[in-house]
């Protein structure tokens, strides 16, 4: 991969790749599975194909979907202080702000820790299942994929998990705190969300959306 000199503009556009972060232009050469194409200027990973990545991501997205629903409604933490017991689910803690104007915050919290990861899993399935099955791309697959990429910074499951640890230490001397089943589901969920992102090669997805296989 080399910088393109000015006089060499006869190259067809499909043979070029532009770094989305710094706009450097390169000749396209697809790396083999397991290899990475990295921008020489700003070190952004441009292409990183992996063998069977599609199936892996679909499996992970399905598992994420199931875990989010479970982790939302099962009790998450239980507290016990001198006979007063209380158990909360993630859903309850999102609704903690539900009095007065703080309800907006409640909605935002619910969106950041449950709805956004859920939406990303659904969109990923919607876009990738037809590609992996070698079918023509789903309707509106491109805007769907773009939207799921835009949602990425707003998916805050892993931050919520660390928040839990902090909250636990804060109440530890006030009361006895126990973990509910949803706590462990949430732990697995955090790992899956990270795995889903690291397995996804955006360029490969865009490429197969733009040049669908004729079957």
């Amino acid at each position: 991969m080399k910088d393109v000199p000015d006089h060499d503009l006869a190259v067809p556009l499909t043979d070029l790749i532009v770094c989305p972060q710094c706009d450097a232009v390169y000749h396209l050469k697809e790396p083999a599975a397991g290899e990475q194409a990295v921008c020489q200027r700003c070190h952004t990973v441009l292409i990183a194909p992996r063998r069977k990545a599609g199936l892996t991501i679909i499996a992970v997205a399905l598992a994420t979907l199931i875990l989010i629903v479970g982790a939302t409604f099962f009790p998450f933490l239980t507290i016990d202080a001198a006979g007063n017991k209380n158990s909360v689910s993630v859903f309850d803690s999102a609704l903690a702000f539900s009095n007065g104007p703080l309800i907006l915050l409640s909605l935002a919290t619910a969106a950041l820790i449950m709805l956004v990861p859920l939406a990303r899993a659904v969109l990923t399935l919607y876009v990738l299942v037809p590609i992996v099955l070698d079918l023509p791309p789903a309707k509106f697959a491109m805007p769907a994929f773009r939207f799921s990429q835009a949602l990425r910074p707003w998916s805050m499951a892993e931050i919520f998990a660390l928040g839990c640890a902090v909250a636990l230490v804060k109440v530890a001397d006030l009361a006895t705190v126990g973990f509910g089943p949803a706590f462990w589901m949430f732990g697995v969920l955090v790992i899956l969300v990270v795995a889903q992102d690291s397995y996804m090669c955006k360029w490969s997805v865009w490429n197969s959306l733009e040049h669908p296989k004729k079957s």
Partner: peptide, 28 residues
């Protein structure tokens, strides 16, 4: 930048968890 949200989540967890009637209550 996203990690700053952690404080909001701590408040959310604490104020839903610590609702122990007369003994102790935490509210945002």
């Amino acid at each position: 930048g996203r990690w700053s949200m952690i404080d909001i989540f701590v408040v959310a967890i604490l104020s839903s968890l610590v609702q122990l009637n007369t003994l102790a209550n935490i509210n945002p």
